[in-house]
Write a protein that binds this DNA or RNA. Structure first.
Lengths: 109, 109
DNA sequence: TTTTTTACCCTAGTTGATCTAGGGAAGTTA
DNA sequence: TAACTTCCCTAGATCAACTAGGGTAAAAAA
């Protein structure tokens, strides 16, 4: 039995959006999403790291090893130009789909 | 390469909501969602019928064979008490998660 | 100084919803 | 009678997310 803490397909969007504000390491991305969503969204590491690889492979983000605020070894990700474009289209898709679901929920009678 | 026309996890919610207004057969459910969403959501039959079985197996809906408006053999589904409860909780979850994603999108800077 | 905790990264294997790509039957229209 | 529409069904593929681990090194606690 698996808990669903995330609408499937939104993780990429969330990561892209958080990275838009600043380059960040994986652990930090998860933390920030958790905080900004007021505890509503939890990103499991087993979801996050594979997602980061996918996105890197697609050329949306790129990584660089560095040292974190806590003096730990960390991989910092930042958006590429392609990633910025992707963020725009995914945001639009998100708006369109959620609006559509909202319409059905509101008007079904 | 697969097109994503739906946020994963929303199909059950949409079906439950549409059935709340009236019992309906599968084909009609798909049509109604398509119409209400102004063409934004398309339910493939290969997604819909397995979903209906799942939901029937979970006791959220129940089926009865009948005859459609077009004089065709059709299976009419309606919500059970359990299905109505499920609709309430899934609607709440939907609101919570989309609001949370909205927060991240809005406040990430 | 040793132990425990925290911060960070990684991955193999499973699950499960959705899609693809069909097939079939029965009524309607041409 | 052929073509089209409406309606139902299913096997197999895909792929994102989850489970459930493992590892290293710094920091904090004992």
């Amino acid at each position: 039995m698996s808990k669903i803490e995330l609408l499937q397909g939104t993780l990429d969007l969330l990561v892209l959006r958080v990275l838009q504000s600043a380059p960040m390491h994986g652990f930090g991305i998860a933390l920030k999403i958790h905080l900004l969503s007021a505890d509503a969204l939890r990103i499991e590491e087993g979801s996050l790291y594979p997602a980061l690889y996918r996105m890197e492979r697609k050329g949306w983000i790129e990584a660089e090893w560095g040292v974190s605020e806590n003096n730990r070894r960390a991989k910092f990700y930042q958006l590429t130009r392609k990633g910025r474009k992707q963020l725009v289209t995914e945001t639009a898709t998100w708006q369109r789909l959620t609006a559509a679901v909202g319409d059905v929920l509101a008007k079904a009678d």
